[in-house]
Design a protein around this nucleic acid. Sequence first.
DNA 1: TCACTTTGTCGAACCGGTTCGCGAAGCTAG
DNA 2: CTAGCTTCGCGAACCGGTTCGACAAAGTGA
Lengths: 342, 342
Amino acid sequence: MNIGEIAKRAGVSRSTVSYALSGKRSVSEETRRKIQQVIDELGYRPNASARALANGRTSTIGLVFPPAGNHYTGMQLDFIGSVVEAAAVHDYDVLLSPSGVDSDRSFQRLLGERRVDGAILMEIRLEDDRVDRLAELDFPAVAIGRTAHPENGWWVSLDHTALAAACVHHLADLGHRRVAFVNRPEQLLRAGYESAHRGLDGFTKAAAERGLTVRTYCCGDDAASGQACLERVLHDDPTTTALVTLNEAALGGLYRGLAKAGRHVPRDFSVTGVVASRWAETVTPQLTAADVPAEEMGRRAVGLLVERIEHPAGPGRHHLLTPPISLRASTGPATGTSFPAA
Amino acid sequence: MNIGEIAKRAGVSRSTVSYALSGKRSVSEETRRKIQQVIDELGYRPNASARALANGRTSTIGLVFPPAGNHYTGMQLDFIGSVVEAAAVHDYDVLLSPSGVDSDRSFQRLLGERRVDGAILMEIRLEDDRVDRLAELDFPAVAIGRTAHPENGWWVSLDHTALAAACVHHLADLGHRRVAFVNRPEQLLRAGYESAHRGLDGFTKAAAERGLTVRTYCCGDDAASGQACLERVLHDDPTTTALVTLNEAALGGLYRGLAKAGRHVPRDFSVTGVVASRWAETVTPQLTAADVPAEEMGRRAVGLLVERIEHPAGPGRHHLLTPPISLRASTGPATGTSFPAA
DNA sequence: TCACTTTGTCGAACCGGTTCGCGAAGCTAG
DNA sequence: CTAGCTTCGCGAACCGGTTCGACAAAGTGA
């Protein structure tokens, strides 16, 4: 069941079997056939650990998870799925690493113990020690998201600033003047999650530009929090007519809160935000939103990572994506407002 | 950066370092301290591949994905998350394996190349060659779901038969007489997915028992299919007053279809089924459903697997779960029907 | 004091691959 | 016929750990 056994049965040396398999040196057609025949008979497959030990490559990439949050959002799921699939195309496996409370432990496992050839990081913070450490070590890694200083990094990211701004402009164009912003949980904002910060930023600036009256909220990653948050929104300013959200998981709760308050979407109240399309299409009315192209982002992240692993050196590369807003059914003109011509 | 380097700097042999780390032989307090000090200074961590090669254990478990479906449902996500977390508790990493179209390839990688010590299988079919092959090889594996002949197997499963039946009884108790069943996609049913089959079975038998008039449907795993499916339901029998579904991803679409048809939930129409609680609570009105305890199932699956890996031999073990129906807001008495006393 | 166990350490072999240097055939060219 | 070049295969060393057998030093009991 090991290479020696194959060699013996094929009547050749171990090295010849190895070369026959890897093709790194020429092997006569005849012995190659003989070896292949024995391999097929025995169903032999080279041991991954031994191979990894010998040539220093594990053919595995690590996917590092959110350091917070015990449950995952739909978007994260989509990333995971697409990363796994893209990795398979490049002949890599994916090792999941829950960088739970002490992200150190899983880092040690992945890097210190050399379990992976490279890593993909999710849920990036503006000041992210994980990114910094990996950069220092020159360890092949690609972030999904970008830090405050992303210039020379390797990453794939949404332009949350632009997306949130686009949502504001969309609402302002529809005549909305009082708009709320529903962000990810406060804990994540405080921890410096980039999407929460940049989204908030883009929202705030664009709203100022358009002269809107706004309030911003943090909201837990679940339906109940969404509902509670919406109640606060309407309590704080009952004349609010629209909201922008980055919080996919709260969306159902926000809708429920609106229904309970008797606000019809989109007649009385418009909702938009940055959400994976699968979710945007699940709610009723379907959400007008900047669709997060999770599948593409995962694929691109893997592409960059594989390139970085296989051709080290070279400057940082990245992709900044700004998907357009998909018009669905959750936004409409503000009522009781003079509606500017389209 | 390897054990030899540590040995040299600590002035001992490689084997002593190894024993100091593993504790498998006694090492004097003094040398142990000296070794530890060097290790701390250099931040040394033993290479995982080398260790795996030497002792035949990778400390990794494989998580084998659905052989169909390019996108994942919320339930699957919850499984993944909980498996990863539970594995971390037992000091195992998780390797994801998309057993795409040719499940052979990933099987070869995981087992043939010995990348993992054991595997957890998801999306089990009644006749599942993956389960059979692993059983033949006596390879440590635990299924989430069970085949047609689960007697001596290792698995964690929901009793979909009982759960679907419970849903039927719940509706029948409320006076519903014409009930639809919305299953997973036809492709999965044909492929023999156990949850789809057993759920359908339980539904059909219980409905017969209660003398209900039923129709059963297959439905794609997305909102649009759900909406289309609901239109078919009402088209085929406009007097239908309730439905049971196993299809989490279609739920939003089903609700939308009902709204479009002017049926109010739960006044005009009741909806129930088997769904992860996170989803059940996202929709409005919140879904009365048998909550899939994904987190518990993942944890139990890992527990069984670790036990099987660490104490081979021993008979198959399993957990069959039948979570109760959580009463929420999506079911109510059938209108225009004499309502039996509670 | 001596035989016997215990404790602590070392060297060597091994896990299962990859890769390098060497040399035996077989060919070509002078 | 021989020098020089390929082609093909072999043995040995190596990757970085673990583990076994041996043995010296220290401790124990009679």
